[in-house]
Write a protein that binds this DNA or RNA. Structure first.
Lengths: 233, 233
DNA sequence: TTTTCCTTTTTGGTATACAATAATATCGTC
DNA sequence: GACGATATTATTGTATACCAAAAAGGAAAA
């Protein structure tokens, strides 16, 4: 045991800044639809809700703006509404980056990375058997954390996390997740098997297919919602 | 002429917020090495330098942190120093995203997009003939703006812009640019020709090669710098 | 019903204050 | 001179107050 290894040292990790905690809280609340797309985020309301000053709220909002979760409409911070075009763009980018992550994982992940991914996949399967949104989001996060860790590209991981958070803006995707969860988990299982076999090409292909299926399902739900809207008008 | 088309309307675009202008200024200053990697960014110094309040500085710093240009070292905002691993990761991501942009451009760009890209390429060639860092950065930005516009994926464009800004942190890349600029412009010329021919596969391959060559050149200069450092120690 | 005007609310930016943390300077001891 | 301890200064994080500008809402008039 090398005493200077970060994992072994007694060094106390620095505490996250209040603004970071606020941004995390808001991100979570947005993902769980506490603030739905289009919702106005009023600074003073958030101050009361979170019990912090306007300064911390404003700084957290800047952070969320950078991620695209929040945009300013007529001078007002608003939870981002994604157009169909943007959704399509997001999935295109997800294919490119997650495809890269799949390739890198297959190429270079350690046995420990594989073991963690296997555990995360099992956890995901257990949650899908008894579907509930909260635990599903947590299990999905764990799965992708394991994938990105094994891929070993922090830049891609950071971008993909932002992508996943943006996708969570879509009610459509959680609806789509609930309805296609059994098929989805089969796809993930096949994907993980290819990664375990270090088959880069198969892993890439299965990863892309999984994302494209998710995209199609989300688009289908969006199209339905558009029809309902048209009927109302 | 349809009077409701955005381009024809008399609508005045909203002014950028002060914090946005500050972030833009800082981004530019970092790219031009006014604040080199590792430089401490002191809030009160920046207030004096830019003639704005601490709030605007802090909000701009949050934005730059989100982009990875600025990170907090021992509680102090600092211009990001990129490790060799990070540089490698950045180029991997650039291949994935710019490869996507190349494919999309070849697939769907209009003749107007192509014309703009051609103009931007000529401007770049003119600058390379009389090399100077400032005009080179501007011409390069124009070239990539044209590419991303024609690719029509704003999410990818936004991420790639952040990537390009991060890459500009590396003195290595501007040094590498100066020494390999003639070869580089040849690669770009071939790339643009493939895009003009709507040859998606060739465009993708040439794009990837260009980036990989840029990456190799940057790594070579980094390795030289490491050697010099080792000699000093 | 539509338009105009007035009031209220909200955001953007500035300034000040204080606590906590980090960095630097000073002093004493060996 | 080197080292360690302490004091001082500088910087960042957070809160609060203030005011201007912009946006939103409501009431009155046409």
């Amino acid at each position: 045991m090398n005493p200077t290894t970060p994992e072994d040292s007694l060094r106390v990790a620095s505490q996250p800044k209040l603004r970071t905690l606020v941004a995390d809280r808001l991100r979570e609340a947005i993902a769980r639809n506490r603030f739905p797309p289009g919702a106005r985020l009023k600074e003073r309301e958030l101050c009361e809700l979170l019990g912090v000053s306007r300064t911390s709220i404003r700084e957290a909002l800047r952070e969320l703006e950078g991620e695209g979760l929040v945009s300013t409409q007529a001078g007002h911070p608003t939870v981002t509404v994604l157009s169909t075009k943007q959704v399509n763009e997001i999935y295109q980018v997800r294919v490119a980056l997650e495809g890269l992550a799949a390739r890198l994982f297959a190429r270079q992940a350690t046995d420990a990375h594989l073991a963690e991914l296997e555990h995360a996949t099992r956890a995901l399967e257990a949650v899908v058997a008894n579907f509930a949104v909260g635990p599903f989001l947590s299990a999905k996060t764990r799965f992708y954390d394991a994938l990105f860790e094994g891929a070993g590209n922090a830049v891609a991981a950071s971008m993909l996390r932002a992508i996943h958070t943006k996708v969570s803006l879509l009610r459509a995707t959680s609806l789509a997740s609930a309805t296609r969860s059994e098929q989805s988990i089969k796809e993930i299982r096949a994907f993980v098997a290819a990664l375990a076999a270090r088959d880069e090409e198969a892993a890439y292909r299965l990863c892309v297919e999984h994302i494209e299926n998710a995209s199609s399902a989300a688009m289908a739900v969006l199209a339905q919602a558009d029809e309902k809207q048209a009927h109302r008008a």
